[in-house]
Every structure is written in structure tokens, then in C-alpha cells.
Amino acid sequence: MDPAKQRYKLVSPELLGQLMQRTGAGTSISRRALAAAAGIPHGTIDHLLNSVVRTQPDHVAYSIARTIGVDLLVLWAPTGRTVPVDGPPAEHMASAP
């Protein structure tokens, strides 16, 4: 996969919502404020929270995580062989017992 086209999948819409209620700075942030700070349309945040959209380009994922004040991998998983763009990891890719 071309690193310039890396996409990240949101780990959990619920976690995003919880982190918006209490960011790394200890304050809350609204959907519109998060979108403005991340430089994206506010509808993108709505779509992520409602599971309409599951993935974002790397620059958007980094921007959302930075704005909330958490490490990227707290909220996002890089898509690829073990994290498909849609759906859970493939069974054959699951760890061995």
C-alpha cells in the first residue's frame, strides 16, 4: 500500500464520543469545534460517531487525535492486511491460541 494513501479505521465511535467529553486537556469539545480544529467538515465527525463512515485519510486521523489530545493508535488502526477497510480482521489473520 502506498504510504501516501494510508487510511485509518476508527477503533470505536463510542470511544471517540467519550474522548470528546473529556479530552487530553480535561475539557469537552463539540462536534463542530473538533471539526473546525481538525480542518474538516463537521459532517465528518457526525458520520464517524454514527458509523456511517469508518475510515479517514492519515492526515485527518492524525488531526482528530492531536486535537483530542491522544496518541493516534488510541482512536485509529491503520488499514491494510490485518485491518481491512471494512469489517473486522479476517479470521485467518487472527492470532493463534
Rank of each mutant, 00 (worst) to 15 (best):
G69C: 04
S51F: 07
A25I: 10
A77D: 14
L15K: 06
T82E: 13
H47Y: 14
I29H: 00
S30M: 02
I68Q: 01
A33C: 03
S95I: 02
P97F: 12
V53L: 07
R66I: 04
L49R: 14
W76I: 10
K9V: 03
M1V: 00
M93S: 10
P97G: 08
G80W: 12
P3A: 08
E14M: 01
V85S: 05
W76F: 15
V11R: 15
A25T: 15
S12G: 04
G80C: 04
P89N: 14
R81A: 13
V52E: 08
L75T: 05
G39S: 09
I64S: 04
D2N: 15
D86H: 04
H47R: 14
P41V: 02
A25E: 15
I29G: 01
R32T: 15
T44Y: 07
D86F: 06
Q18T: 09
T55Y: 05
L48P: 00
A37K: 15
T67H: 02
P88E: 15
L72V: 08
S63E: 11
P3H: 04
A96I: 13
L34V: 03
G24Q: 10
A38I: 00
R66E: 14
G87L: 10
T67F: 00
I64M: 09
S28W: 03
K9F: 07
V53G: 03
I64E: 01
T44R: 13
A35M: 10
P88C: 12
P84Q: 05
T44I: 06
L34A: 02
G26I: 11
P13R: 01
V74H: 06
N50Q: 13
M20A: 02
A33H: 14
W76Y: 06
S12Y: 06
G17V: 07
R31K: 12
V60F: 07
I29F: 03
R31D: 13
A94T: 02
S63G: 08
Y62A: 09
V60Q: 12
A35N: 07
V60D: 10
A38P: 01
T67M: 03
T23F: 02
A65T: 10
K5N: 11
L75Q: 12
V52L: 07
R22P: 00
I40M: 13
P84F: 02
